[in-house]
């Protein structure tokens, strides 16, 4: 038996709006430890990992591990019926293949879960989520790839289009900067990755969920773009960098 009740449907709506373009169908794996969702995009170049912890719910009951295959667009459409501060309840009996109240059809999705090594990163940048979103959007009008370079001074975004290039440098802020403007950098050594902008732009749909975004990079490894939600936990997006031929 699974019974989840969330006082603020708005949060779940924002979560779904931020992932529904990247992934169409996915399994919500619910256990006593929380609800998680891990899925790759159709081109298998990007991946997202979502964790919703029990203490983010008003009521969380999960007697045994249950995996609910859902079409995220349908779930987002269904949740549109709820206003942001409505309470949303998700029930699922073990045997049934639907979740009640909206009778949404569940699907059997064979998803191959991937093991994400908890490796260290050469550079970790924390910056305002809205700034990162605006940079990705602006650069997306110029080129389709961005070279993100991190040094101890700051983080640089460079893109080259067929008619012009753009180079945005965000300097690390001094420790006294206010939280919402702070740009902090933890770095073992300078690192630079070339990434497809359309995926990064898709990741920034999660901007409404968090004030800050954490960007973790290691040479030759997928970049991690993480939005921490105050009580629910996190959404992490992974994107494989492009490699020169």
């Amino acid at each position: 038996m699974l019974e989840l009740r969330l006082t603020r449907a708005g949060l779940l709506k924002k979560v779904l709006e931020s992932i529904r373009d990247l992934v169409t169908d996915a399994n919500f794996d619910c256990a006593a430890t929380g609800c998680s969702l891990q899925a790759m995009d159709s081109s298998r170049v990007a991946m997202l990992s979502l964790l919703l912890r029990p203490d983010g719910f008003e009521h969380y009951r999960c007697d045994r591990n249950i995996s609910m295959g859902m079409n995220l667009a349908n779930m987002a459409r269904m949740l549109r019926c709820a206003s942001d501060d409505d309470t949303v309840t998700i029930n699922a009996d073990d045997a049934q293949d639907k979740i009640s109240d909206y009778e949404m059809k569940l699907m059997h999705i064979t998803s191959e879960n991937l093991e994400i090594p908890e490796a260290g990163y050469e550079a970790i940048v924390k910056m305002p989520a809205s700034l990162f979103a605006r940079i990705c959007k602006d650069l997306g009008t110029i080129g389709d790839t961005v070279m993100i370079s991190v040094t101890k001074e700051g983080i640089q975004f460079f893109t080259r289009g067929d008619i012009r290039t753009a180079n945005i440098f965000c300097r690390k802020t001094t420790p006294v900067a206010k939280e919402k403007e702070a740009i902090s950098i933890e770095m073992e050594k300078p690192v630079s990755l070339t990434l497809a902008l359309r995926y990064l732009i898709s990741f920034t749909k999660a901007t409404p969920l968090a004030k800050q975004v954490t960007i973790s990079m290691s040479y030759g490894r997928p970049i991690v773009v993480e939005y921490k939600m105050e009580i629910m936990d996190h959404i992490r997006f992974y994107l494989v960098p492009k490699v020169e031929e």
Binding site: S43, V45, L114, P222
Partner: peptide, 14 residues
Amino acid sequence: GSKQPMITSFFGKV
């Protein structure tokens, strides 16, 4: 030109 590898070549299947 640049190549775009897949994520499955970085993260093993569980």
